[in-house]
Amino acid sequence: MQHEGNPLPKNRKKETERLAQDSIIQIHDLVYTYRHREEEINLPAINGISLDVERGSFTAVIGRNGSGKSTLAKSINALVLPTSGSVIVDGFKTDEEAHLWDVRQRVGMVFQNPDNQLVSAIVEDDVAFGPENLGINPDEIRTRIRIALESVDMYEHRKMAPHLLSGGQKQRIAIAGVLAMHPDIVIFDEPTAMLDPGGRKEVLDIMKQLHEEGITVVLITHFMEETIHCDRIVILDKGRVAIEGSPVEIFARTEEIEALGLRLPFAVEIAAGLRAHGIHVPQDILDTDGLVKYIVSESDTEMKRSKA
């Protein structure tokens, strides 16, 4: 970077870029085993995962039930500690007890069921719960509550009782509670699984917004549509990384996706179906907007062609 006017030889430059890339999460050879209930054996939930997550990126983790997604998420904020291998968050190893709170403060988690995450009878108390536990002074807490609730667009509901809110609103309060801790990373573990279509959209928009604000977002989901705007998709299977890549790369691998118990996002499924009819739809169409634009422009071209 310091030799801007004088480019480095190509291979040196690549090396520098690699070093400059800032991995906020570094997972190295992670194994996590749990004890089987009856038979006296240890079973692996995570069976050798190595993964780096770049600071400020948006990563989606998908895979069938039991593939290790949630265990991986819990490994990142030290709810689960490695049986072997390591997880390093912003320089802190998760299994060093002295740094437990350094890790937890950096990594916020949002879970599937909003009702299990709300602890207070009033929205703003709920958001205050985390910062209070960090021993932050009351003035600062008030500021944090306001900013956190504003960023999920729930500030006007601050005096309400959480149980009177909709599913999407409750999930936004849970997110505000996490944001008030000023995390660098937020991990969403199936945050929309229990929400109606409106609530799902609310939460998805907030995840995108947090990413734009520079927070590192890791999203675990079963909804393929939610992954198409991510920087990177990681597919887990049997406790390992099966494939990873950009959404365009991943969803081009139709057969593998199905073999891994997943499916294509809707627009990709339609594009694949059209290709089977001999229509060469470009590979980079992932969402309905892209699909609609393509179809309209193709039919316009066809109309001009037939007129000529």
Partner: peptide
């Protein structure tokens, strides 16, 4: 709810 796409179908 909460199932992967294959189990869902």
């Amino acid at each position: 709810a909460g199932l992967d796409p294959k189990s869902h179908q």
